[in-house]
Amino acid sequence: MVILTSRSLKIGTIIDKTLGVVEHGMKPTLIYVVGLTLINAAIGYYTVGMTAPMDQVVIGLGKFVVGVVTAYVLFDALLRRTGLISRTEGDVFLPYVGLSILYTLGVVAGMIAIVIPGLVIMARWMIAQPLLIGRGYGVRQALGESWERTRGSEFTILGAWFALALPLLAVVIACAILFDPADPIGIVITQLASSAMSVVSLAMGVAVYGLIVGKESQAAAFA
């Protein structure tokens, strides 16, 4: 595999490799989508009437924990199935949790600052989690290297992400309009689309990581 510089990335290439990552990791991806959808749909259904601020904090924290655990498992599976794991040490779950917290805070803070900064941060930190899981980098090193490696390609990455995620976002918006918040069908469809959007982000992180970092010893299987 030829490792690309971030500036030579193309939207079509990122989309193609993202779909390739999903194809190579189809089984864990399906398990992730079904499991995450069922868990979040159950949380959404049984907490639909809980609108107090503290209730919303607890619900949000619960979903965050579920999202972090399931994303870590899927990231690890996708990196292994595409041949992009090169770390020699053991589990890196706790550092991953810390990185996920910083990543989320950074993106949310950017979104509050007129949205675009949050999207740029999301793109520039796109490969931080694969760097941590795939190479065993520390949190600070992973965030810093991701920021540098993706320099100049943030809008290319965002273009690819929007191309895959916008149809799913449209489904979420349509469900909000067409279904009552307590309708279990609407809840399930919304959560299914949200889970698929998460897959887009995770698989694209692996794809971009493979394109501009790769594995030191051999080419990635999906390339």
Rank of each mutant, 00 (worst) to 15 (best):
S194Q: 13
S6N: 04
V65E: 02
Y46D: 01
I31Q: 06
A163N: 10
L166G: 01
G110I: 08
L94N: 10
Q141T: 15
T190H: 11
K17Y: 12
Q218N: 12
L9H: 08
T47C: 01
I133L: 07
V58D: 00
G60I: 02
F93T: 03
M1Y: 12
I157M: 03
V139T: 10
S194R: 12
M126V: 11
I157Y: 05
S217T: 14
L131Y: 04
I85E: 12
L99Q: 10
M26H: 11
R151Y: 00
A196G: 10
E23C: 11
S8V: 15
M197E: 08
L78Y: 09
L178F: 13
V66S: 04
A42E: 03
I121P: 03
P181L: 06
P53N: 01
P167E: 01
M54F: 15
G110P: 04
S146G: 00
A142E: 09
K63E: 14
L132H: 04
M197Q: 11
I185D: 01
T88F: 00
I114V: 15
E154Y: 09
T13W: 12
A193F: 08
M126H: 12
L38P: 02
L9K: 05
Q191G: 03
V97I: 11
G152F: 00
S8T: 15
T5Y: 08
N40F: 06
T88C: 02
L166P: 03
G205S: 13
G159C: 06
L78S: 08
V115R: 04
A123G: 08
K215M: 09
V73N: 02
V2R: 15
E89V: 15
